[in-house]
């Protein structure tokens, strides 16, 4: 299957935009990727081995976090896995309006 590497991760993946791995599941694909490019590991996982909260994995159009089998989801050679960091921000300034306080995002529970 193809793994699509986003801009900030490319320097740690041999400069490649797309990498091909042989894998039966999403988890196997990620392990194959980080096995071939160990520098990627610290960018994808916390020191405790959990997927960083801001790293999104999309199997084709689907967020892996919300797939029933998550990292154990079966994949085929025709599938594409996108690794894409989140993008967000803003002034964070209340500007005279109600400031909505959000709970900080926890680390993903998959990849334990």
């Amino acid at each position: 299957m193809n793994i699509l590497i986003s801009t900030p991760l490319r320097p740690f993946a041999g400069g490649q935009h797309v990498l091909q791995v042989e894998a039966g599941t999403v988890g196997e694909a990620i392990r194959a990727l980080t096995g071939a490019h160990p520098e990627l590991r610290k960018h994808l996982f916390t020191p405790e081995g959990k997927l960083r909260a801001f790293v999104n994995l999309y199997l084709n159009e689907d967020d892996v976090r919300y797939l029933p089998d998550r990292e154990n989801t079966r994949v085929s050679a025709a599938d594409s896995l996108s690794i894409i960091p989140s993008i967000a921000g803003g002034t964070g300034h209340p500007g005279g309006r109600a400031l909505i306080i959000l709970q900080p995002a926890g680390e993903a529970e998959i990849w334990n």
Partner: peptide, 9 residues
């Protein structure tokens, strides 16, 4: 008005 986020998909 003070935050933005682009959907990952």
């Amino acid at each position: 008005h003070n935050r933005y986020q682009i959907a990952p998909v």
